[in-house]
Structures are given as C-alpha cells and as structure tokens.
Design a protein around this nucleic acid. Structure first.
Lengths: 230, 230
DNA sequence: CCAAAAGTGTTCACGCTACACCCATGC
DNA sequence: GCATGGGTGTAGCGTGAACACTTTTGG
C-alpha cells in the first residue's frame, strides 16, 4: 500500500430531486430518520459503498425513495466545509435528478415521510442542503437551455402550453406563447399525435411527444438545442 | 458517533493548470514521484487533509508546484471509478486553474520535473487524468463565454490581438479581428494605456488592462459578459 | 353569440457577419 | 513607397420581441 498515513473521510451523496406539477417546479424532500438532525427536512442522501461509483450511489439512493430506476441524474459538485456535518467529517457529492412527478411510488414516499415542496416555499433544510439546492437550480436553468432535458420532467405526452409552463417555471419568467411555439416547432424534435387534449381549452390542443431519434438526427446535422434566446 | 460501519476512502484533488503562450493553450504537467505509476506524466494532485476544504487543498497543491497563491481555481467534479487508481480506492475531485504562464517559479518547476505541454500535444497521462483534462477544457470553453476569466491567462497589459489569439486558442477557431475588437470595446471593460506595443506591427497597437471595477459597474447595470455570439 | 385558449402572420429593431477600406510606421 | 498589422465603416441578413389577428368549440 503506497499511500501511508493519509486522512480519510466519510463520503456521501445528496440528491436534489426535481418534479414539475402543472405550473410549479417542486423538490422531493424527506424527514431525516437518524441522528444528527433527526426529524428535520433533508435532501435524500446516503453513504458511498466500497464497490460502487458515485453515480451508482446516487442511483441507488434515488431508487430507495422513489422506486424508480433509469432516472436522469447529474453530478453537481463536492461540498466539503470542515464542519458542514457536526457529527463527522463528511464530504458530500451533490446530485440532481429530474423525474416525472406522477411516476413515483406513493408507498415508499409515505414510508420515508417524503413530501413535494414548491421551490419557492421550501422549509429549512439541514446542514448546507440549501446551498446544494441553489446549485441544482442554477445548473438546471443553464443546462435546460442547451440540452433537451426538460422533457424528463413532463409526462410522455404533453401540449405545447405544458411545455411552455415548464420552461416558465424553470426560468421564472413568462414566455411569449407564439414565439415559444415557433421556436420549438422550428427545431423539429417533437411528434404530434392525432389527439387533442381538451383540458386547457375548448378548441383543444394537440399532444406531442419528444422524439429522441429526431433529436439525434438533428444533432448529427450540426444542429444544437438552444433556448438561450427565448 | 452516529455513523457506524461506513466505508471510507482516500480523497484527492487533481489540478488541470492552464497557461497561454503566444497563441497556444498549454497545460502544466509533472512527473509523478511516488508509486504507483512513478515517473509517468500526471496532473498535479494531493490528498485532502483533515482540517481543510477541497478548495483549500487545491490551492495548497497549486502553491507547491507554482509558488503562486490567489490563483483562479474552480472545481470540476468528482471522479470515482472503483479501479481508477489500482493501488487504493481513491476518489479524486478535479479542479482547473488559470495562471499567467510567465508568473511561475522556475526552481519549483524543475524540482518537480514539471513541463508545459500544448493541449493538442499532450503525453499519455496516468489513471483517468485525460478525462479530467477533457472536462476542464469543456468547462473553460463554456465558462469563458459568460465570465471574464480569460484575462487570468494573460499578462496584466495586453493588446486586443493577444486577447483575440487567446479566445481563438480556447474556442479553436478563427475570429474576425474587426468584429472581435468591436465586441470587446462595446463592453467597456478595458482601460487603454497611453503605450503602444510595437512587437506585432510597425504601427504599434495599444496596450489594455482589464478593469475589475468597470466590470462590476457594468454588471450592476444589468450587463452580462457574453461572448456567445462571436 | 361569446369567452378563452390554440395557433398564425407580420413588423420592427438589433446584433452578428463579411468584407472593404483607411492609418501609421519600419524597412 | 510599400508591406504589414492596427483599426474603422458599412451593407445585409437572421432572429428574437411584440402584438394583432384568425380558429375552434363549449356553454
């Protein structure tokens, strides 16, 4: 063993779990069930195991609370303040996940005392979890402008208005319906279904689905997804 | 101690150190002086100490090899493949640094067998260090479009042509001299000195300096640094 | 018929692109 | 005086912003 007398630490992952409900961006939080700070609201987290990567640890943690696998997941960064956790020197790697909010396992949620909160009505969180949430929000805002990740937060079939509501929630500003529609139509990434959703209006609006193949085709042709100008 | 029976690990930082020389983006690499992989080219790295944050560890590592403090430094992300280091389970946090290439301590460089390499002529690197370099390059390309970090790679006084050469090296494409100049002039972030540099041309070109105060003033007025359209 | 949301058309202004052109100076 | 890089002028094009307008249908 060539590395002698090195300090060592506990390594954790903490997940900021995003959902989108009608017109609100939400976070899934849970009541921490062990000391310290037992009973306080917290991000879902867990310790890294010896035989897994950090990405695998984050996936495992997500599966435990949501029952879902193959979720969109991205690493944010490491949080390493010496006293961020008063009980031990724990370095945490922040992650964020995007899930379809109606896709989760209710039973598991209740088991862990988990609950969805609007991002503008968050409760107090333990340790530096607010900082992790801030970083996740900034990353989501930035990344969603250049990658088609918004669809991860929507059901498979959605209307253009739902899509616009999502981006309005992410960017926290209103978008012109006419220009927004044109922008997405011009990218040619969506399949229009021969079905209208009449919930939102009497006229009804077509349902669309994101088409991964079309996206790849466009990308290979030099196109890049870009919502920077909307 | 509430956390029982948790696995623990070694935590390291590895720094991608960028410099800019005339028209080339370069990296500072060194010959690793301990096992495993002793004598191979490597990023500058070190292990996290118990009483410091990751940012502090990265600063310390940089100071050791360059003799410089207060360097621009930014965390990239964690690299955690189970067998990335064959000698032990080491999780590494990647960082990148931007330094003025002529500002370093030659003595320290020789002591560590360090050397500058053009980014398109890198030698083989140990472990997953190539992956860390790739991430650093992508981050630098992105970040330099929206933050005035390019100046960190230049001397205090520079010509507009030098500035353009820098961005050409970062973006790896040519930029129109006329339009580039106008773009920067319109941002009003630079002080023009009453001095001309005659190295590049007979007419001579004015030297400029980045003015942090002007930048803050512009920013507070709703301006944001943006080179996305050049 | 009317309200209300879906969806289309059209104008305007701004900013990037491309390239022509003038400027200063060392040889 | 001429070659060379510094620096300015400018016409054209593409795209986002704003908003008027048409379509559809349930009540």
């Amino acid at each position: 063993m060539p590395y002698t007398n090195k300090d060592n630490y506990l390594l954790a992952v903490d997940c900021v779990i995003f959902g989108f409900d009608h017109d609100r961006l939400k976070l899934l939080l849970y009541k921490r069930n062990f000391e310290p700070e037992k009973g306080k609201w917290s991000l879902m987290g867990g310790f890294l195991k010896r035989e897994e990567t950090l990405d695998e640890a984050a996936s495992r943690v997500l599966a435990v609370i949501t029952g879902l696998r193959n979720i969109y997941l991205e690493q944010l960064s490491a949080f390493s303040d010496v006293n961020r956790d008063p009980a031990a020197r724990v370095i945490s790697i922040g992650y964020y996940a995007l899930i379809n909010i109606h896709d989760y396992d209710e039973v598991l949620l209740h088991k862990y005392g988990a609950q969805w909160f609007s991002i503008d009505e968050l409760p107090d969180l333990i340790f530096d979890h607010h900082e992790i949430v801030d970083k996740a929000l900034r990353r989501l805002k930035r990344k969603s402008k250049t990658q088609p990740i918004g669809f991860e937060l929507l059901p498979t079939y959605f209307t253009i208005t739902m899509l616009r509501n999502l981006y309005e929630a992410i960017y926290q500003r209103e978008l012109d319906p006419a220009n927004f529609r044109r922008k997405f139509m011009s990218m040619d990434l969506l399949d229009r279904l021969p079905i209208k959703d009449k919930n939102g209006s009497k006229k009804g609006s077509f349902l669309y689905a994101f088409n991964q193949d079309k996206y790849k085709l466009q990308t290979s042709g030099g196109f890049s997804f870009d919502l920077s100008g909307i």
